[in-house]
Every structure is written in structure tokens, then in C-alpha cells.
Amino acid sequence: MSERLKVRKTYKLYIGGKFPRSESGRTDLVDGDNVARASRKDARDAVVAARKAQPGWAGATAYNRGQILYRAAEMLEARRAEFKHLGVSGEEVSASTDRLVWYAGWADKLAQVTGNANPVAGPFFNLSAPEPTGVVGVIAPPSLLGLVSVVAPAIVTGNTVVVISTGPQVAITLAETWATSDLPGGVVNILTGDPAEVAPWLASHDDVNALDLTAVADAALAADLEREAAGTLKRVLRPAGAEADFTTDPGLRPMTALLETKTVWHPKGF
């Protein structure tokens, strides 16, 4: 009896909860797989999907967002074998899963840590609370842990993301875990391809609020993207450079950098 012929997986993009091919029809051959190479129009579509999803995602209760991120951790844990097959170590899958769990717990706590009741000198209630900045463009590191470490802090607070990844198989496999985690379509959108080609379209896009350049190794590209981002005064998370180490405690900064502080005043009187 001949050996059973394997059913291969096709790695496409992840936009608006669906897995479309690149509108350009382009693919790259990566480790034997034809993976989609995203175009500027895919980036455009992804931003539309992210914007559409953002109010609903931000409007979900923090408890609900935390539950969904925890569900994503469950799904990731369950895909351990597949990631191993893609060359991701068991330790890295464990660390990635644990990180998702860590961020899931932040969903309903961050506002308590970063918000303030402000004792203004007058008869006013005054409260500062964090809010998501909106749609975030993320140039992701290729590793699973890196990808989880940039996406989770962005979305846990209610942002939606358009991710450009150079690790297509890992990224799209991770997308499959999110697609089965009750995460609403459009909250996370993944474009695989060349950041130098696609990222400038995100950096200059009027409907993108922030840009995460943490994982950009090319300093000249990062500076160009930051300059482009200045056009609409996007919030920019600058490259971590050689220090980009996703194994350490990330602290609050990856979350707080993508938040706005809203301060509400109201008089107090009978």
C-alpha cells in the first residue's frame, strides 16, 4: 500500500476574518510553500476591515476581550504540533501561549493601573481613563513569540491591527488560531510579504492611527516610515533595535503606547 499523499495547506492572507489571496495574485515561494505576497491594495483592504471592526471591538466589555484572548491562548496551545512542524520550538509555543494568557488578564485591569481620579481644585468630578488609539499598523517580527508580543498588547485594549509579517507560515497559522477564538473578523489582519513594499502605505494611510515599528531592524526604513507617519501625526512605537528581546517581561509600554488618555470633567452639585 502506497504512502498516503499529504494534503498541503495554502498560506494566504488574513483580512476581515477571511483568508483571501493577494488581490495582486502574487506569491512568494517560502520553504517550499507558495505564500501570498501582499500588495498596497491588500493593505488598503485590511485597513478598511480593521477600521470597520474597531468600534465594536473597543465597545466590547473588557471582560469579553480578555475571554477572547484567553480563548486564543487555548487555541494556540492546541496547535503545538503544527507549530513544531513549522520549526517553532515547544518552549516558544509555551512562551507565546503564556504571553497571550498574561495579556488576556490585562484587559480589565489596565484602566485601573493607568487611569486616574484627578483631584482638581474645584467642584468637579474628573477622571482620566485610557482608550484605544484606533487602527494600528504593525511591522511584525518573524517569530511566533515576537508576533504574539506585538499583536496582543495592541488588541487587548480595543485597537485593531494590520500586521505585516515576514514569517508567513507561522503568521497565518497563528491567524487560524485567532479565526477560531471568537475574535471578531477584522480585529487582526495579517499581510505577508515585504515590509519595505507595503509598510509605507500603512505609514502614510490617513485612516491608520499608530505604527508599531518595534521589530523593524532596518534603521533607514524605520526613519522613513516614521517620517511618513508624521503626515497624520500617527503614534509611533520606535524600533527596539538590538534590544528587541521578546523573552523578557514586556512591561506596560507595548500597551500604553497605543492608548489615548481621555479626561472627562463633570460638575458636582445638587
Binding site: P123, P267, K268, G269
Partner: peptide, 8 residues
């Protein structure tokens, strides 16, 4: 209505 803080 009348807002106390405002009117004062």
C-alpha cells in the same frame, strides 16, 4: 434644569 456649579 439648573446646573449648580455653572450658575454659581
Amino acid at each position: 434644569g439648573v446646573d449648580k456649579v455653572g450658575v454659581e
